[in-house]
Amino acid sequence: MTTRTFEALDKRSLGWLRYLYRKATTSDNWDRDGHPHAHWDNISGPPMTSFHRFDLIDSSYAVALMSDRTPAWSEVYSRILDELVERHTSWWAAEDWMTQFGDDPDRNSYPDRYRPLIPEALWGNYDVPGWTANGIDPYGIQMDPVAADGMLFFKGFFGLLLGLHRYVSNDPKWNNPFEMIRDGKDSFTWTHSSVMGQLAEQWHERQMGCHCENTKIWPY
C-alpha cells in the first residue's frame, strides 16, 4: 500500500485556489464568434505557447496536486477542472490550428530572437515552432485537431487535462460524446476514451513520434 501524507495546504496554496476558481468560473465565450476573457494568458512564451489553451493545461497541475492533499474535499477542484476542459473543447483552444494554414507568410522576416529555434541553414525559409502549418505536406488540410496527423501537443495536453478531471472528480461526464470546435461543418464529436485511443493509435503507427506543429516532432 502506498503511504500518503496529507500535509495541510497553506495560505498561499488556498489563495491561489481562490483566484483560480474565480478565473475559471467567470463566464466568457471561447466559440469562434466570442473571445476568451482577458485574464486567460495568450502572451507568454511566444512563439510556441502564446495561446490560450496553454493557460488551461498549466492551470490544471496545481489543482490536481492540491486535490490529492485534501482528498475528502473535491468539489471546488472538480468545478475548476470541468471549466478548463469545457474551454479546451472550443474553437479558441485550437485557434492556431484553425487559422495558420500553409507556411508562415512572415517566415522571411522573423525577429533575431527566433534564430535559436530554427535550423541555421533554413533561416528565412522555415516555419518557427508555434506555427502549426495546417495543410502543408505530407498531410494536407485537416480541420479536426484531434483526428489530424499532427497537433500531438493539442490532443496530448487535452488528454492529460481530461485525465486529471476524471481523477479528481470521478465524474464520467467527458466520456460521453461532446462536440469540439463547434464551428458549422468544423464540429467534431469525441469522448475522453476516443481522444486517447486516437492518440495511442497514431503514436503506435509512428515510432519516431507524431508531429506537434507540422512537421516538428518534440521529444515530450
Binding site: F6, A8, L9, D10, L14, L17, R18, R69, T70, P71, A72, W73, V76
Partner: peptide, 8 residues
C-alpha cells in the same frame, strides 16, 4: 476553504 480534508 478546506486546508485539511482526508479520511485516515
Amino acid at each position: 476553504a478546506m486546508s485539511q480534508a482526508h479520511w485516515e
